[in-house]
Design a binder for these strands. Sequence first.
DNA 1: CGGTACGTTGAGTCATATCAACCATAGTGG
DNA 2: CCACTATGGTTGATATGACTCAACGTACCG
Lengths: 236, 236
Amino acid sequence: MKQKEVYIPFCDHCAVQRNSVFKNLTKEEIELINFEKEFRIYKRGDVLYNEGSRISGFYCVNRGIIKVFKTGIDGKEQIIRFAKSGDIIAYRSVLSNEPACTTAKVIEDAGVCFIPSGLLYKFIKDNSSFSMDMMKLTCHELGEANAYITDIAQKTVRERLAEIIIHLINDFDIDSEGYLQISLTREELANIVGTATESVIRLLSEFKSDKLIELNGRKIKIINQKMLEKISNFFG
Amino acid sequence: MKQKEVYIPFCDHCAVQRNSVFKNLTKEEIELINFEKEFRIYKRGDVLYNEGSRISGFYCVNRGIIKVFKTGIDGKEQIIRFAKSGDIIAYRSVLSNEPACTTAKVIEDAGVCFIPSGLLYKFIKDNSSFSMDMMKLTCHELGEANAYITDIAQKTVRERLAEIIIHLINDFDIDSEGYLQISLTREELANIVGTATESVIRLLSEFKSDKLIELNGRKIKIINQKMLEKISNFFG
DNA sequence: CGGTACGTTGAGTCATATCAACCATAGTGG
DNA sequence: CCACTATGGTTGATATGACTCAACGTACCG
């Protein structure tokens, strides 16, 4: 992990602007993060932390994409969420004071700030607006988790795959040519949907012959989003 | 809903003792809840609030059992959690300031205190210990939701049913004769596991012939918990 | 006594998992 | 430079878990 001329982001040009969870911190508090944080650079495949480990802080993603997953029986990953620029991860373990219930692994080369737990506790204690924002964030995530439980329990793999594609569009956008701005292996897609890799492959090529998407390796081009939404039964 | 001589519980004899999320509130704050809360009595089948509605407060269960569920496609319920004495529900919607993402319905006749949102906001603002406890609660629930996503995505119905039974034992205990202290319809069981009613029926009678449980209507007697744990692949 | 909700069982079907073989690509080391 | 290996992608054949549909039993309730 050579780091030649690493540009370390300053918090006050970074998180605050983005309407992030830090938006209600005071100048002094931001300055404190800026002082105590540790900027780290990761490459694809690097692990930020492992399921079961105790962590002494949380992470704020500056750039890149991280996948957050649980490891199920016989090692199969279940991807719980992705984190991208502006998102924080591992705060759940810090706040519930439990070992990490997930592993975080880099999907696209990333720059991440590590912020010690102490600061999180301090801000929650001192700054009730921040406290409220954190609560809002957590509760929102809980709501999404509940929705996902229902989906996974009730929808078919086909519906779920379509829905995941819609979610990825919402979270990562598509470029001017219609290409989804995140590329995942078929296995990773399977590990979000909760199915076998082969099923994802088959369904993707089904979507392709139905002219809903086009495929170029890992790049997915969205042709008919409306129809995908219809298939997914998803109204969000 | 006739209420003759309703005994309204006093908060200081109630929640605080129980090592609940309210344990770090001051005497004055507890008194405030006691003053502003509204005690309500519900019978089996009554609905506390509906998915999609805006709610102006949250609920603290004094006695009884409530099921909290989302309604999926063609009206099939997905039970997310149960709430019993000492548990609070609907706080998620209040804190995230979103409409309720679940419906809450009574399973066993219940007494419930309704506490207006304002108090929750106030306590989070004024009392950082409480704020931290709420955060801990939410984050813990989020961890459980994540675990459940993984289970539902990766385990078979058989494994999940066994696991649910174990969870129910942990949450609701068994009486001196080994009977699980919560009784659910087969359909409700199916709506936790995320499967069809018929599948639950078949698997339960399978468990019965394997001498893992005995069945008396809705009452489930636990014979071989160890084996159920083994089947469920659950280590918690 | 009929009605409604719940429980049970059997039979047939289908979506999805599993297993296996094969190809493409890229990185590695001798 | 070429085998060698690992990783990811694809396709086909086969197996099966779980759902659906349907019929029927049971029990409680007004």
